[in-house]
């Protein structure tokens, strides 16, 4: 698990880390929407510069961002092949025997790749600079206006934060069960179909049993400490929007407006 960088929080001391999670989530959403307007290369260039500025400000290394993108590379290459096979418009760029790669295939792929890269950059910018718990708090607050139409924003946030809290424990548990079953001769890498099915069962059943046990213990612990879903409670962590947060939102909104302008009016 040590090598996965996508979606991971990196504890650094930067102005971006200190921003209000609500502002960051909203800004991310605005810029993500902006990407989907066909604003052309100029538009993408502007977004790229803006996001790069945020990354530099957050003290994240571009190497880290690059690592987050790597897992996507294979997918993008696959996409390129499909585009080459399907898109036969524009001018042929390269001809190998009967087969030709057309300029539109390259252009289309590049469009998608650039958008995807931008999306990864933007989301990484959020997840790497915001503690998972602060993210949940932000989501809770942003969802709370929807409480009137029955969205249980607090319960959703509690659910996410508990899931986040127990992910490392569940990973440990999974590894322990894998080792225990390997000690009983389970071979996860090879074997006949029936053996494979048994191998998977021998992991899943114990994992479920222990997850249920955990859930029961946790429910007891929460109840014993006075937690009752739906009842009023105070909150320890309070979020405060400051001037820098509003600035971020303003910047994101301007970026979106700019893209709309480039796409439809320029």
């Amino acid at each position: 698990m040590g090598n996965i960088t996508l979606g991971r929080y990196i504890p650094l001391d930067s102005p971006v880390h200190k921003l209000d999670p609500r502002a960051k989530i909203m800004a991310m959403l605005l810029v993500l929407v902006a990407i989907f307007f066909p604003a052309g290369w100029l538009g993408y260039g502007i977004i790229f510069l803006a996001v790069s500025f945020m990354i530099i400000l957050s003290k994240l290394s571009f190497n880290f961002i690059w690592k987050s993108m790597k897992p996507m590379m294979f997918m993008m290459f696959f996409l390129f092949i499909i585009n080459c096979l399907v898109l036969k418009t524009g001018t042929p760029l390269l001809t190998i025997g009967k087969f030709a790669i057309y300029s539109d295939a390259v252009k289309q792929t590049l469009y998608i790749v650039v958008r995807l890269l931008l999306m990864i950059m933007i989301t990484t910018c959020l997840t790497a600079t915001t503690k998972p718990l602060d993210l949940t708090l932000g989501i809770e607050d942003l969802l709370s206006p929807f409480g009137k139409i029955g969205v249980p924003s607090h319960e959703i946030a509690m659910l996410i934060s508990i899931a986040l809290r127990f992910i490392p424990d569940l990973i440990d548990e999974t590894q322990r069960i894998i080792k225990a079953q390997e000690s009983r001769g389970v071979d996860l890498k090879e074997g006949k179909i029936m053996e494979r099915i048994m191998a998977v069962l021998s992991l899943i059943v114990p994992l479920f049993v222990s997850a249920f046990q955990r859930a029961e213990d946790l429910a007891n612990a929460m109840e014993a400490r006075g937690y009752a879903p739906g009842e009023p409670r105070t909150r320890y962590k309070v979020l405060k929007m400051r001037r820098s947060d509003w600035l971020l939102l303003l910047g994101a909104a301007l970026l979106l407006a700019g893209m709309i302008f480039l796409a439809f009016f320029a």
């Binding site: 006075g226 320890y236 962590k237």
Partner: peptide, 16 residues
């Protein structure tokens, strides 16, 4: 329950 010691002690206080 909390993600840090501080948050865990706070959990019961929030409920009360």
């Amino acid at each position: 329950i909390g993600s840090t010691v501080r948050d865990d002690i706070a959990f019961g206080l929030e409920n009360h």
